[in-house]
Design a protein around this nucleic acid. Structure first.
Lengths: 243, 243
DNA sequence: ACCTGAACACCGTTCAAGT
DNA sequence: ACCTGAACACCGTTCAAGT
């Protein structure tokens, strides 16, 4: 389910990791807190990430984690950001002659990371002031636009558009499916099949479009869908950069 | 802050509204529940929408709202969907000779609704199976693509891309700013100004792009930014429809 | 400097009982 | 059919006290 970027944790505010477990007393570090938070999020989603559950996994009391984070929201921000460090590293060497192709590669890496970890969608890149890796990734995407013949304003808009599209699309696709799918009672195919049935049952006169695309929906692949949309956006950008 | 679409509530499952307040006992209706939920969300965001607070506003006990909804998540879905009814109505008459221009109008209406109600970003159009108005809006957008020379698959992709872009961008922009802004302790200008300062303080060698666009960021308008990105996407689509 | 225990002030949800 | 009261099983956060 998760790749090697899993345990990469950032160290904001310059805090240092410490060796764990002095005698009889739990001992953490921001890195350990974030790594465990990510593990918990992977296993049971944002709902499963309670301060108490986190503390238990760290072998200490709930109050101890407040030494490292100011509250649950910041924890979520930092946990998401720590995962993006891996994405940033993974795309570090991407650089072809075509900046738009690179943009595509970077955006796809972000998409894959979010699909792999649906909880990321809601917290990734939403608060760059407190998310250093999100900021770096934003910078990285922006740098590609520096190679295009655009005004600063157009570059700002293009970068934001790419980020918005990736986050929005990935968040939507990676959304928690209705519990039964998560618990494994129902497969993704069954789930998709049910939705398809519902759509087919709609009045064709009132829902001509739904009926027009229901077969496409039935057999669709999220990644193809994402790439198709991204290419629309990038085609538009390519056009802009030429005139 | 909110426009006329505010109190539009859907009536899923065909339930009827009832006259309120039989003697000494509270009496609700799904519409009343959703209208009050929307009001609560407008006033204090998702965090402020507790079942208990909602019940108090309705003049009854917490358990009573469970007659109308299965849980808090469904409440959020339905509340968001009830607002989209207004958007759907507002764009009902949009139909020029240019389907892409219409797409732009519809997408912009959605964007405005979400910016007006930031909480919408996380719940709008995320579960069309339980959100009839979201489904109608999706249909409405898709119908515009029916007028373009595309394959069913391309239409499916284009529609999803537009929706993904709108939700993603709007959700990001309409995001809860760091509490102080909400409480009015700090104006949006001050907030933007602080973020700008932070950016200017970054090392220009490591963050060339940030420095390149910081002036644009400082004076940017969210709506312009949204429209610029949307036009990129729609330009790409226009290109596709021609070949 | 960092962790513990216990308390405070909440939550969503359920359910037997009422009307 | 629809609402109430009370209980259950949790939460995040704070804080004085410990090491």
């Amino acid at each position: 389910m998760s790749d090697e970027t899993e345990r990469v944790a950032a160290t904001p505010r310059g805090r240092r990791a410490r060796t764990p477990n002095a005698r009889g007393r739990a001992s953490h570090s921001l890195d350990a807190v974030l790594a465990e938070a990510v593990a918990l999020l992977d296993e049971s989603g944002p709902q499963g990430l309670t301060i108490r559950a986190l503390a238990t996994r760290l072998g200490g009391g709930a109050a101890s984690v407040y030494w490292y984070i100011s509250g649950r929201e910041e924890l979520l921000d930092l946990a998401a950001d720590s995962v993006l460090a891996g994405v940033h590293t993974a795309v570090a060497d991407v650089r072809t002659a075509d900046p738009i192709a690179d943009l595509r590669t970077i955006a796809t890496a972000m998409f894959d990371a979010i699909v792999d970890r649906p909880w990321l969608g809601a917290y990734a890149m939403r608060n760059t002031g407190a998310q250093p890796n999100s900021l770096s990734l934003y910078e990285r995407i922006g740098e590609e636009t520096l190679r295009l013949d655009l005004t600063p304003r157009q570059r700002f808009h293009a970068t934001s558009a790419v980020v918005g599209f990736v986050i929005g699309t990935a968040a939507d696709m990676g959304q928690e499916p209705p519990a039964e799918v998560v618990s494994g009672e129902v497969s993704r195919e069954e789930y998709l099949g049910r939705a398809t049935e519902q759509w087919r049952a709609l009045d064709p006169a009132s829902y001509p479009f739904i009926h027009h695309i229901v077969d496409e929906f039935a057999g669709h692949d999220d990644r193809d869908q994402f790439l198709a949309g991204l290419d629309l956006l990038l085609d538009g950008l390519r056009l802009r950069a030429r005139r």
